[in-house]
Amino acid sequence: MARASHAGTDVLLSVENISLSFGGVKALTDISFDIRKGEIRAIIGPNGAGKSSMLNCINGFYHPQEGRITYKGVTRRQMRPHEAAEQGIARTFQNIALFKGMSTLDNIMTGRNLRMKTGLLAQALHWGPARREEVEHRAFVERIIDFLEIQHIRKVPVGRLPYGLQKRVELGRALAAEPDLLLLDEPMAGMNLEEKQDMCRFVLDVNEQFGTTICLIEHDMGVVMDISDRVVVLDYGKKIGDGTPDVVKANPDVIAAYLGTSH
């Protein structure tokens, strides 16, 4: 059952004819789709379908050889990852990419980095503006910590946290950037049912409360079909389906990719 959509019809990001290869290996072939403002867009597909590569293209970590990406009306071929971040794209990673030596609080504070402006000298003296800025952002981060219900691990180095909590901290770090587009790479992988339910709730809350557009990769079909507005299906680097969960579920190519076909 698809949920009631909050999505508008404005396109936030559109991907046109993207192709990406590593040496001779084609990771993505001629992919096109769009993400509308305020929707939850899922990318699904079997392992090795090129889902993570797709996200990497969107946030500038990989540079596709062909195709165009239009974000907020600006078309581009390439940009550096930090440029994508500056334009409001945040993400989480399939294999958690937290800063292991830092506390939960510091990790989420790093998500605010683009909004911290005071210079070297002010920070060196911890004077006036630097001090005010630090406290201001701390207050914002504390709201995220409350939202994700991780107050008790505020000062624990994240390397010591269990997997499910690390995933949550990583989401918190992405949220701290107040992104317009949030890319989630398998946010529920390896979680038990309860943790998945929590994470689903957070994703939906983020979408509803902050109006953040979300693009997520997920293997759990139940979750995908429940929470996403529209779904793109990739297989072997090609797009084989696109539409609302119900449409995708009925697509014979998609069924073949997931269940196999009789030849």
Partner: peptide, 12 residues
Amino acid sequence: RDMDIAAEIIGF
């Protein structure tokens, strides 16, 4: 130090 790629992706 902890993860340079992730650092770059979140904007450093």
